[in-house]
Nucleic acid binder design. Structure first.
Lengths: 135, 135
DNA sequence: AAACATTACTTGCAATATGCAAGTAATTAT
DNA sequence: ATAATTACTTGCATATTGCAAGTAATGTTT
């Protein structure tokens, strides 16, 4: 979306300039749950992102060092995407969004289970999951 | 922005449907720092939101019970906006965004000071600040 | 009391972004 | 050799954004 033009020097604003649209955090969400995704994997998500939007978001997120491309072990046509450290570091944000949403929306069962774990030991959960994604 | 149409039953997606655009969280940020703002106060923010966009976001946030209108004590032309409980409950999200941004952007001094306090006792900070905003 | 200033919006319109359907190039499978 | 996958790109209609200007209700000044 945006061409790295900062609207102000506010950290919230700076952050939104990178991933503050309706789609970017969903891509990041998919990568946090799946660790690695192909283009086709993203398209399978319930929200039904359009292919052109997906391509433009992947490019922007890559330019902003939130995600990176990898060679797929099985094929040269396939591309694997995964989170960088910068992307993984967004986990606390995603978790707090989940915890907020839990108060105000009905939550699917698998997410409830995850949040139960989170509540037992938030720092521990983040550390373990981040390590998993870095691997 | 959106007319309450949910794209999926994912809590992240549901959340973004409400405040997942480039402006809504900035409005919420202003209200977290200032507790109460007039229309004109929002316009003063560094990001320079357009008046029509501000009006549409305020309306959407109100419809979604994130903010509410109050009578201004000084005048009938002025309107005060403030966060509801639902809006205040986003504080952990805003804080985690700040903490993430701190790692990847230069941060203004006043925010640095705030984050220092946050790091001393995150839960305590949120509790105290939330209470302040509820008052 | 008339004139001017504030405040919170609304309106019109050009520019940009989104969403949908279809197309393409490089592999990979049959 | 032919067909299928995969990761995109392109064209175009629709929706959203951003800018400038306008307006209605109140408040202030002379």
């Amino acid at each position: 979306m945006n061409k790295t033009k900062k609207r102000s020097d506010c950290p919230i604003s700076n952050s939104l300039d990178i991933w503050g649209d309706k789609w970017s955090l969903l891509i990041i969400r998919d990568l946090m749950f799946a660790k690695e995704c192909t283009y086709g994997d993203f398209l399978k998500a319930d929200e039904r992102i359009a292919t052109n939007i997906l391509a433009s978001r992947l490019q922007a997120l890559e330019e902003n060092k939130m995600i990176e491309k990898l060679d797929h072990p099985d094929s040269k046509v396939k591309v694997l995407y995964r989170l960088t450290k910068k992307g993984i570091d967004l986990m606390p944000v995603l978790i707090e969004i989940h915890l907020w949403a839990e108060k105000y929306f009905p939550i699917p069962e698998d997410r409830k289970a995850m949040l139960k774990e989170v509540k037992k030991d938030k720092a521990g959960f983040i550390k373990a999951k981040s390590k998993e994604l870095m691997g």
